[in-house]
Each structure stands twice: as structure tokens, then as C-alpha cells.
């Protein structure tokens, strides 16, 4: 096994999980909701894209658009069911987390009931071609995944920095109470945030289905990975999540190379624990008391 091959693999996967990590991070910092229903959003988008590919068309753009739209829809659904009824109730954080877990339980069981246990696969989005770069063979799907996720992340960050809605979301990140006082609707912002982050998870789902199949319980691994990356990078920080995704990808690649595949999770968790023991709020997490809820 060649180091560069492993490295490119790790980067590709890190890109996908990084998308979910950024989604988890943004949701937590702006809404104060630990959303553990991204597994559900992920699978929902995957099945949505699959249905579209079966009934509408197999053009890559259609499938990607369907995945993103379905992800956004699932995100809004989670927002309507969990965030809007709960956000002003006592114990919001605990209850929100348990509610999103309940949604992921309900979701995976309903997917099992509707679609059966057999996994589904999406058509290839990026065709079959490869580029030889400095002696490393980069296949089409790897390049496509990296480019797509980087593009999505870039667009989201641009939108957050440049638009009025983005300004609202950033205001909510700083101080939700003050934001609501100056006229930023907590509920409407919640819907935007969940739609955008859901769209990111939807894209991640479509991209990951290039490597894996879509199955009722397949949302769990991306969720755990995404949450771990977000945790390591610091909840609430986009650049922290990106750095953590790259670092964890490196750890994964190095472990694969020198120790063996079964130790990947162990080294990753030891790495995360080490980071968190040194910096309890992650690599570039918000400072203490920055977000109290």
C-alpha cells in the first residue's frame, strides 16, 4: 500500500465527514442544539437521491441537486419537530439532544420499513477517468468529492460572511438573547440554519454513496465521525472543523499505514481525547461562556 494512495483516500473521506462536522458545528453554535439527527438527514437525502435517480433521471446534476434538496428538507423537518417547539423550554440542550436521537431512531426504523434492509446504490456521478499527478493516480470520484465538498463549504462560508441571513446566523452565534432583542427571529434563523446544514449533509450523503451503499443504518458512522471532528475542532468553529478533519484524516492514513486498519478508531479517539484534554473546547473552539445555553 502506497502512502499517497492512503493519503488521498483519507483526504477524500475527511472532506465528506468534514461537511457533516461543519454542519454539526454551525448548528450547535448558532442554535445551541446538539443535532444528532444528521444521521437521519444523511440517510433521508441518500434515499431521496436514490428515488430521484430511479424515477426522474440519472444525470449527476439532478442527483446531486436532489440530495441537497432532500437534505435541506430533512433539516427543516428536524427544525420544525425539535428546535421550534423546544428552544424556549427548560433543559433545552439535553432535551434537544435526546429528541434528535429519537428522530434518528424513528428515522432508521421507518427507512427499514419503507425501503427494506437491502442497500441501494446511486449511479456514478463523476464518470470513470483518472489523472496522474506527480506519480499519484487520482481517480475521478476522489477529485469530484474533494472539489464538490470544497465548493459547498466555500459557498456556505461565503453566504455566512456576505449575506444578511449569514449576518443573522453569526449574530445568533455570538449571543442569541441579544440577537433576538435586536429583531432577529430565532425561529426563522433556526429554519435557515437547519436548511443549510441539512443541505451540506445531503451533499455529503450523495458524495459518500460513491463509495458506500445507502442503507437504513448507514447514517451512524458519518454522524459519529462528523461529531468527533466537530468536537476535536471545537464546536462552533468552521476553520477548527476543517483543521480537525485534515488532522484526523492524517491520523487515519498513518494508522492504516503503520498499525493496521482495525486500530484506526482507537488512534483517532486517543488523538481526540488528547486534543480535548489539552484544549477542552477543541482546537479553535469558542471561549468559555461564549455561548451559554
Amino acid at each position: 500500500m502506497d502512502v499517497f494512495f492512503v493519503l488521498t483516500n483519507a483526504i477524500t473521506v475527511a472532506c465528506i465527514y468534514g461537511l457533516i462536522a461543519v454542519a454539526v458545528s454551525i448548528t450547535w453554535s448558532s442554535l445551541g442544539l446538539i443535532n444528532l439527527a444528521y444521521g437521519f438527514v444523511f440517510t433521508f437525502a441518500g434515499y431521496g437521491a436514490w428515488l430521484v435517480s430511479q424515477h426522474v433521471g440519472e444525470h449527476p446534476l439532478i442527483i446531486a441537486a436532489a440530495g441537497i434538496a432532500m437534505g435541506a428538507l430533512a433539516g427543516v423537518l428536524v427544525c420544525l419537530v425539535v428546535f421550534i417547539p423546544l428552544h424556549d423550554k427548560p433543559n433545552f440542550t439535553t432535551r434537544g439532544m435526546i429528541a434528535t436521537l429519537a428522530i434518528s431512531l424513528i428515522g432508521s426504523q421507518s427507512f427499514l420499513m419503507f425501503f427494506g434492509p437491502r442497500p441501494k446504490s446511486l449511479p456514478d456521478l463523476f464518470g470513470f477517468w483518472s489523472v496522474d499527478l506527480f506519480g499519484v493516480t487520482l481517480t475521478s470520484d476522489k477529485i469530484g468529492i474533494v472539489v464538490c465538498s470544497a465548493l459547498m463549504l466555500f459557498l456556505v462560508v461565503r453566504w455566512m460572511k456576505g449575506s444578511r441571513r449569514g449576518l443573522e446566523i453569526r449574530a445568533m452565534m455570538m449571543n442569541p438573547h441579544a440577537a433576538s432583542i435586536v429583531g432577529i427571529g430565532i425561529r426563522s434563523t433556526g429554519i435557515y440554519v437547519m436548511a443549510v446544514t441539512g443541505a451540506m449533509a445531503g451533499l455529503a450523503s450523495v458524495l459518500l454513496s460513491q463509495t458506500y451503499y445507502i442503507a437504513p443504518f448507514n447514517g451512524l458512522t458519518p454522524l459519529i465521525k462528523g461529531v468527533s471532528i466537530a468536537l476535536c475542532g471545537g464546536l462552533g468553529s468552521v476553520q477548527g472543523a476543517v483543521i480537525a478533519a485534515i488532522l484526523l484524516g492524517l491520523v487515519e492514513a498513518l494508522t492504516n499505514e503503520f498499525l493496521g486498519g482495525q486500530y484506526v478508531l482507537m488512534t483517532q479517539f486517543l488523538f481526540i481525547i488528547a486534543v480535548l484534554v489539552v484544549r477542552p473546547r477543541g482546537i479553535s473552539g469558542l471561549l468559555d461562556k461564549a455561548r451559554e445555553q
Binding site: T93, M97, V227, S228, L231, F269, I273, L276, P280, R281
Partner: peptide
């Protein structure tokens, strides 16, 4: 604190 620990233990 709190939820960092929850997510860590989930992992």
C-alpha cells in the same frame, strides 16, 4: 464539560 463529554462518550 457537559456535551463535549456526552459526544466523546458516544464515540
Amino acid at each position: 464539560d457537559g456535551f463535549y463529554y456526552a459526544l466523546l462518550t458516544l464515540g
